[in-house]
Design a protein around this nucleic acid. Structure first.
Lengths: 254, 254
DNA sequence: ATGTCTTTGTGAACGCGTGCACAAAGATGG
DNA sequence: CCATCTTTGTGCACGCGTTCACAAAGACAT
């Protein structure tokens, strides 16, 4: 999970568990693919395989939305696409602003997955005067001076922060003050926001670090399997290769 | 969470819970910031605030690594930075390849958070012959024909996929066949990999969809607070605005 | 040396999420 | 209309993660 909810301690909103909400987009994608292939119905087993989850979990997830399946047959693809879209609020138009048009901001602006899901990039905003007026993904970048006006005029309630970490908090504060109530934060910083504002964060380097942890563990186990206890003892001495069962003596420096 | 573990059903590796591993990078970042400000020690309370977590959780997390704190004082910042880095495997060099040099791939190549954490972009790979030779982030893009060779020669075990979804699985297969055992997937597709290979996914549109869900819920509650049951009934009729307590009649189309 | 005060480390309880396994429901064929 | 067969929806149990609350540990002052 590259992300984690920041506020809101796992409250289940409207009876639907957070874990389920997080999976709905997954189901929706799989269903959309089926829909494009004109598949009329799908069983929980098939859909679960396509979405990469357990079928019992999928059925339980859907049961929170209502009884939309037909026993002995499965789920009607089109109908389910509609129900999940509606539940997620994707049947309405969500104007979004992206603040910080560097490489990542530009990548997001060009990302096709937004428009097809009801999200519309209402504005691209950057603090650099050089950027103002330049076209990115067919949209003219605007200077951050007009941030409040842009948000107000477009009725924006979702903001995406792709700025350097140093200015993320102040950008966040301005967004919130201007009326934004949901923020997707790509800057590697912990944002503090008032109650009622949702923040989700995506941290690219965190994901890599988690992978590195497991990768190291795999390498360690492998080494353990090859060599015997001798290699472990040596690794513990090196203090870097770190033997698989860790817990080196721990010499407190200060 | 923008991400979710794909394989490996919450196994705790080497006694450290997955949830804890996922938070270690968070602590590490907060500690690094303190280190740069030359702060010598920090209490669990302060560090927890900086990382945006509960202090009891933080202490329990650290307890899995060992007893690195001093009662009555707190934790030695430098020492903890080292211990967490070592635990995550960041004291060693991780060569990484990025496959698919579009906007997102370029953004990642330029991302500063990698190099500072032991990750080194060993190669940028793209299937487009036009891209080959072009410089991105100071690195020449190479054609995907040489993928296997590049991975082998650089000892790459971590691959990042930023290709269009249609080719993600085959890229994944080639990476795995060439020896990659950890994959960070940005393509909106479920990747299937053999046992022993870790996949983590980051899906940008999923995060936005989860935000939209909560945003819609907030809007619904607001409307409910303003108007009475009348508004709810009307919204249920519109079938789009969707009243806050949902569960519309559900007319099965097929 | 002794007492006080701060902060860690952890035992224990609780709650959420997951997955099994099965009964209920309905489609389909005879 | 009845029997069979498929697939959903869910009760239940289990395990992980979170949080509270407190005892143990050590710093620091006197």
């Amino acid at each position: 999970m590259a992300t984690g909810r920041t506020h809101r301690p796992a409250t289940r909103s409207r009876g639907i568990p957070e874990a389920t909400v997080a999976r709905l987009p997954l189901y929706l994608r799989a269903l959309t693919a089926l829909s494009e292939r004109s598949v009329p119905t799908v069983s929980s087993e098939e859909l679960a395989a396509a979405a990469g989850v357990n079928s019992a979990k999928l059925r339980k997830d859907f049961s929170y939305l209502g009884s939309y399946g037909t026993r002995g047959v499965g789920y009607d693809v089109e109908y389910l696409v509609y129900q999940i879209s509606r539940e997620l609020g994707l049947t309405q138009d969500w104007p979004v602003v992206i603040v910080g048009i560097g490489n990542l901001g530009a990548a997001l602006a060009n990302y096709g997955g937004f428009a097809s899901r009801g999200f519309r990039v209402a504005a691209l905003i950057d603090a650099d005067p050089e950027m103002a007026g330049k076209q990115v993904a067919g949209i003219a970048v605007q200077h951050s001076d007009g941030l409040e006006k842009i948000i107000d005029e477009n009725g924006v309630s979702i903001g995406v922060i792709t700025t350097p970490p140093g200015v993320a908090q102040q950008v966040c504060d301005r967004l919130v003050a201007a009326g934004v109530t949901s923020i997707l934060n790509f800057a590697p910083t912990v944002l503090s926001v008032p109650d009622g504002v949702d923040v989700r964060k995506v941290d690219l380097s965190i994901e890599l670090q988690i992978l590195a942890f497991h990768e190291q563990r795999k390498a360690g186990e492998e080494a353990e399997a090859q060599a015997g206890a001798a290699a472990v003892a040596q690794a513990a001495q090196e203090d870097n290769g770190k033997g698989p069962d860790g817990d080196v003596p721990a010499v407190m420096p200060a």
